[in-house]
Nucleic acid binder design. Structure first.
Lengths: 342, 342
DNA sequence: GTGAAAGCGCTAACAC
DNA sequence: GTGTTAGCGCTTTCAC
C-alpha cells in the first residue's frame, strides 16, 4: 500500500499542506516542524504519486521521442541517447516511440493518439509531409527533426543543412579525382525529405563540376539499412559504367555497400571511394574507416529539447515556429583517402 | 483547453458516466445514446486524460527499461527495440533510462526514485550486486536482465546461459586449431556479472582441452565499447606469446579488436581468429564478418515483458521469483573460418 | 440503461 | 507558519 501525504501528516501530527510544503522544499516552514515531518517522511518511506501530481499540474514531465526504429539504425539510437541526456538535464524523461515505417503510426504521433501522457514530442518523421501537419492539434507541442518537413512549416524544426553537407561530401570525391560518382539511398517517389535533400546536394556538386547526372549511377533503396546498402551496391557494380565512387545517404547504407565492395574484391578507396552520412561510431571502426558527414548530434538534441521545453513551459506560446540549423562537418577517413602513408 | 468527459456529457445531454461507458466500450448502452455520445466525442475531439485515469487506476501503463547506455552499445539499442515491440503488443509503453555506469543511478532505478510513474522496471544492471537488491522495495515490480545478479535471487530474471555460450565460442576456436586463445573484456574486480560468467566459460573450455590459463592472454577492459576493444587488442599484440585467437566478451570489443588487428597488418582469421558475443547487426557486415554468439534477443525481450506484466497485473503476487533462460547459438562467420572457398 | 456522488493523491488558494 | 478546502479528470459503487 503506497504511503500518501495524508499518512505522513497523521504520523507527524501536522496537515497535508505542511507535509507538501516540506516535500516541495517550500521555505516558510519552521525548522522544528520540518524536522518532524522529514522524520515521518523517512520512516514511512514516502514517495510522491506522480500521477496525482501530473493530474494536478496538467503536466507529466515526460516527452516522447518518435523515431523510425532503433534496431537497425544506429543514428537513431545515438540520437536517442543524446536526447535522453539533454532531457535529463532539464528534468524531463523520455519515452521512445518507434514509428516503424508506418504512415498511420506517424499520424498517431502527430495527433497525440498514441501518447496522451506526454507533454510534448520530438518527432523525426519519415512518411509524413507538410500536408499532414495540418492534422497536428495545437495542444501538443511538437519539434520536428530532419528534413521531411521543410523549414518554414508551422512547427519548430531542428536540422542540419543537408543539401550543403551532401554537396561537400561529393565535392570531396570530385577533388580526389573521381568522376563516376554514384549515389545510394534515393527515394524516387519522394518530393521532399532527407533523401531528396541529400540527392539535391549530390546533383548540385556534379552539375557544378560540369558533370552529368547519369541514371546508371543512381541507386534507389528502401529503408536506409545495411542490407539495402549491400543490395544496392551489388546492382551498381553490375552496371556500365562502373562507379569509381559512391555517396551513401547514410552510414548504414555505406557499411552495407562497403561489405559488398570488399566481398566482390573491389578495393576501397583505390577502385571505389566511399562516403557515408551521420558519423555513427561504427564508421570510425570499419576497415577501411568511413569518410562521412558528422552532424552536430549533441547540438541537434540540445536544441530540440530546448525548443520543446520552451513550448511546454509556455515561454513561447503557439505559433511563430523556430528553425534551428546546426553545424556539420565532413570527416575524412580511409574510405576516400586510404591509409596514411607511413 | 483540453476536452473533458464533462464537456462531452453536456454536449450530448447525458451524464459523465454514460460518456465514460461509451469511451470504454461498455456493452450496456443503448444504440441511440451511444450514437449521440460518439458524435459529441468526435465533434469535440475528446482524448482521455491519462494522468487522471492513472491516478484512478493506480497504474500508468508505462514500464521502464533501465540499461547502461544506448549510444555506444548496439546491443542495448537492439534490446530496447525488441522490448518496445513486445511491450506494445501488450499495450505498454517503454520509458528508457540510462544508468551510465553510475552505481547511484542504478540504485535509484531499484528504489524507483527516478521513475515513480512507471508500473515496473526491466533492469539490466552493471554495477549492482545481490546485496544491493535488498534495497528494492517490494512495491515496484522488477525484472532483471543479464547475469549481474545470479539466478536464485529475490527478483524475476531473464538471461541466457552465458557460461555455456562462452564455452561453445572458445571450443569452436579450439576446434579450428587455435591454442593461444586470448580473452578481451575481463573485469577483474568483479566476482559476479556477465564478465565473470563469460570468463568462466572461456576458462572451462581451455581447461577442458588441457590448456593452461595464461595471464598474458587475459585482456582487462573498462566498458565494453569499441575503443576499449581496440586498446586492449593493441596491448595483447605487444605481449609474448602473441595470441592466435581472441574471444571478445561482446561484439563492440570484437569490432574494436578487429579494427586494431587489420590496422596492424594481422590477417583475420589466418593469423588471429576472432569471436564476439551478442550478434548485433554490425557483426554481419564487418569484413571479415564476425563469428559471434547470438542470444535469442526477441525471446529475452518477450519473456522480460511477460514476467513484468504478470507481476503488474497481480497474476503473480510478490515472491516466488521466476528465472527464464533463453536459447543462444554460435553463428560461425568469416572471422574464424575465412571466406567460403569458391 | 442511465445518473449522482465519492474519491484516487496532490497542490493552489485562501484563511487563520 | 500552518491548516482547511476545493478540485484536477477519471472510474467505481450504488441508486434509480
Amino acid at each position: 500500500m503506497p504511503v500518501t501525504l495524508r499518512d505522513v501528516a497523521d504520523h507527524a501530527g501536522v496537515s497535508v499542506k505542511t507535509v507538501s510544503n516540506v516535500v516541495n522544499g517550500f521555505r516558510h516552514v519552521s525548522p522544528d516542524t520540518r524536522a518532524r515531518v522529514q522524520e515521518a517522511l523517512d520512516r514511512l518511506g514516502y514517495q510522491v504519486n506522480l500521477s496525482a501530481r501530473s493530474l494536478r499540474a496538467g503536466r507529466t514531465g515526460i516527452i516522447a521521442l518518435a523515431v523510425p526504429e532503433l534496431r537497425q539504425s544506429s543514428y537513431f539510437s545515438e540520437l536517442a541517447g543524446a536526447v535522453m541526456q539533454h532531457a535529463e538535464e532539464r528534468g524531463l524523461v523520455v519515452l521512445i516511440e518507434q514509428t516503424l515505417q508506418s504512415r498511420q503510426r506517424e499520424l498517431d504521433v502527430l495527433s497525440g493518439a498514441r501518447n496522451r501522457l506526454v507533454d510534448g514530442v520530438i518527432f523525426s518523421p519519415l512518411e509524413l509531409g507538410p500536408d499532414d501537419l495540418a492534422t497536428a492539434p495545437a495542444g501538443l507541442p511538437i519539434v520536428l527533426l530532419g528534413e521531411r518537413v521543410a523549414a518554414g512549416g508551422p512547427l519548430d524544426h531542428v536540422s542540419i543543412d543537408n543539401v550543403a553537407a551532401a554537396r561537400e561530401a561529393v565535392t570531396h570525391l570530385l577533388r580526389i579525382g573521381r568522376r563516376r560518382i554514384a549515389a545510394i539511398g534515393l527515394h524516387p517517389d519522394e518530393r521532399i525529405g532527407t533523401a531528396e535533400q541529400r540527392f539535391r546536394g549530390y546533383a548540385e556538386a556534379l552539375t557544378g563540376a560540369g558533370l552529368p547526372l547519369r541514371r546508371e549511377l543512381l541507386g534507389d533503396t528502401g529503408p536506409w539499412h545495411r542490407e539495402n546498402g549491400a543490395a544496392c551496391m551489388r546492382a551498381l557494380l553490375a552496371r556500365d559504367p562502373r562507379p569509381d565512387a559512391v555517396f551513401c545517404f547514410n552510414d548504414m547504407l555505406a557499411v552495407g555497400a562497403l561489405r559488398e565492395l570488399l566481398r566482390s574484391g573491389v578495393r576501397v578507396p583505390e577502385d571505389v571511394a566511399l562516403v557515408g552520412f551521420d558519423d555513427v561510431e561504427e564508421a570510425r571502426f570499419s576497415t577501411p574507416s568511413l569518410t562521412t558527414v558528422a552532424p552536430d548530434l549533441d547540438g541537434v538534441a540540445r536544441a530540440a529539447v530546448g525548443l520543446l521545453q520552451s513550448r511546454i513551459s509556455g515561454d513561447r506560446p503557439p505559433g511563430a515556429p523556430h528553425t534551428v540549423t546546426r553545424q556539420h562537418r565532413l570527416v575524412v577517413r580511409e574510405s576516400t583517402v586510404g591509409l596514411p602513408r607511413p
